[in-house]
């Protein structure tokens, strides 16, 4: 137990010490949200029937993107946190960890928890953008967001560790993660509404775990229950599988199950690591 905390603590200390990484982590979300989002929002609203009245007049693309951007930050940070495992192999620290009497399982769990915590912090830091984009976030939402972010981060940190355990160079790791994360992000509804997609794409979206993760963030932040049905549909907020509208608790279950699968696989794979 002590070992898990120690491994976790190391990642958290290093996260807060690395100022460049801390500041740099704002760059991508900023660009997406402010540059891409603001640029697209005009085009988006004219595509929505150019409506200056009716329910679609409330459509604000930047606000729509915001939960997705939080999601993107959490995914990226969480999955990239496993880079430290590869770097520890490269710089030798992994040996210090592996020759200690700690069990491999505690090391893997500590790493996943460390990555999840760091991703949670990064995700929460995105709330800094709130005043500039005109969404209103209540304390209740923040308290709902924290466990959801952590759960999502846990799933992706585990996936990251699973990949990192099989690799020896950080270049290789970064390459694979890029190839993996971009399509998952595009097919998750984080950056554009999931409405009117071709069937093949709809299929990919529905099997993408990030879809359900992003949708949880949307449900918390955008409060679709209080929207006009037409707006909700235009924003692609009625996520359905086999004509059944997925509920928030079902999404929690899906992501939790995936977390368990990923963390078990990652732990098994990591346990085979030799120093």
């Amino acid at each position: 137990m002590e070992g898990i905390i120690a491994i976790w603590q190391r990642d958290v200390i290093k996260f807060f010490r690395d100022r460049a990484r801390l500041i740099g982590s704002f760059a991508m979300p900023f660009m997406f949200l402010i540059l891409f989002g603001s640029g697209m929002s005009g085009a988006m609203s004219s595509m929505m029937g150019g409506a200056n009245q009716g329910p679609l007049a409330d459509f604000d693309f930047v606000q729509f993107m915001f939960p997705g951007i939080i999601g993107m930050t959490v995914f990226n940070t969480a999955i990239f946190s496993a880079l430290s495992v590869v770097q520890d192999k490269e710089f030798g620290y992994m040996r210090e960890i592996l020759v200690s009497p700690m069990s491999r399982v505690s090391i893997a769990i500590g790493k996943v928890l460390g990555g999840s915590t760091v991703a949670l912090f990064q995700g929460l830091m995105m709330l800094i953008f709130v005043p500039f984009i005109g969404v209103s976030i209540s304390f209740v939402m923040i308290f709902q967001l924290i466990p959801v972010m952590f759960l999502v981060a846990f799933a992706l940190s585990s996936l990251g560790l699973l990949i990192a355990s099989s690799l020896k160079t950080s270049q290789g790791f970064q390459m694979i993660i890029q190839i993996l994360i971009f399509p998952m992000l595009f097919l998750s509804g984080a950056l554009f509404p999931l409405s009117g997609m071709p069937a093949w794409m709809n299929f990919l979206v529905k099997i993408n775990p990030l879809t359900y993760s992003v949708d949880m963030f949307k449900k918390i932040i955008l409060q679709p229950d209080q929207m006009a049905p037409a707006l909700r549909e235009a924003m692609g907020l009625d996520l359905t599988v086999f004509n059944h509208i997925i509920t928030f608790s079902e999404e929690i279950i899906v992501v939790a199950l995936l977390s368990i699968i990923f963390v078990v696989l990652a732990t098994m794979r990591f346990s085979r690591t030799e120093a």
Binding site: E2, I13, E96, I97
Partner: peptide
């Protein structure tokens, strides 16, 4: 096999915990 981004004390403290 030191973690060079950490202080000497932190390296030693982590070892104690491991």
């Amino acid at each position: 096999t030191l973690d060079e981004k950490l202080t000497a004390n932190e390296n030693l403290m982590l070892h104690c915990k491991f």
